[in-house]
């Protein structure tokens, strides 16, 4: 999932740095740089994994709850009636893994209800359900 994303980037970066430094400063520097990059990649993957694990959502009767964050823990409660529109996006790497991100927009810029890394089917289901609920409960300003 997400860490697969980080993993790909790490391997590519490690290879690039390794080759570049190997060419510029000899084999030792190349190996060290590869090791450092891989270590960094592993740590960031670990962070990402924790971040990803902390990301959860719950559909309740009248509102959607999204909780996320490890360092800064956030929990948002967004009533369906306040929803303005639902956005489903899928970046190139997300598409590679058949994933997409669902984002709920309200009139407040600060409401922060984003759910990344959903499988396509689940994202579509969530989108349809949110739209339906939003329409039946829509409240004016």
């Amino acid at each position: 999932m997400r860490w697969a994303e980080a993993g790909t980037i790490t391997i590519v970066l490690a290879a690039l740095f390794g080759l570049a430094l190997w060419a510029a400063a000899g084999p030792l520097a190349g190996l060290v740089s590869v090791a450092v990059t891989v270590a960094l990649g592993v740590t960031s993957t670990w962070f990402l994994r924790r971040r990803f694990r902390a990301w959860r959502y719950q559909e309740r009767h009248e509102d959607l709850i999204v909780a996320r964050g490890v360092m800064v823990q956030r929990l948002s409660v967004v009533p369906y009636g306040r929803m303005q529109f639902v956005e489903v996006t899928a970046g190139p790497i997300e598409r590679l893994f058949q994933l997409s991100t669902v984002k709920l927009h309200t009139a407040a810029a600060a409401s922060d209800a984003r759910i990344p890394g959903l499988e396509h089917a689940e994202a579509a289901r969530l989108r349809d359900r949110l739209t339906e609920l939003g329409e039946s409960m829509a409240a004016g300003m």
Binding site: V72, Q73, V78, R82, A107, A108, A109, A110, S111, A113
Partner: peptide
């Protein structure tokens, strides 16, 4: 007029057992 309700807990707040609750309304 509530648009959403959020609870945020930063790294400084956690050891102190504190958290902030935001009531968002339309606008930035």
């Amino acid at each position: 007029k509530t648009q959403s309700i959020r609870r945020v807990q930063g790294p400084l707040q956690r050891p102190l057992g504190l958290a902030t609750v935001h009531v968002d309304v339309a606008g930035k």
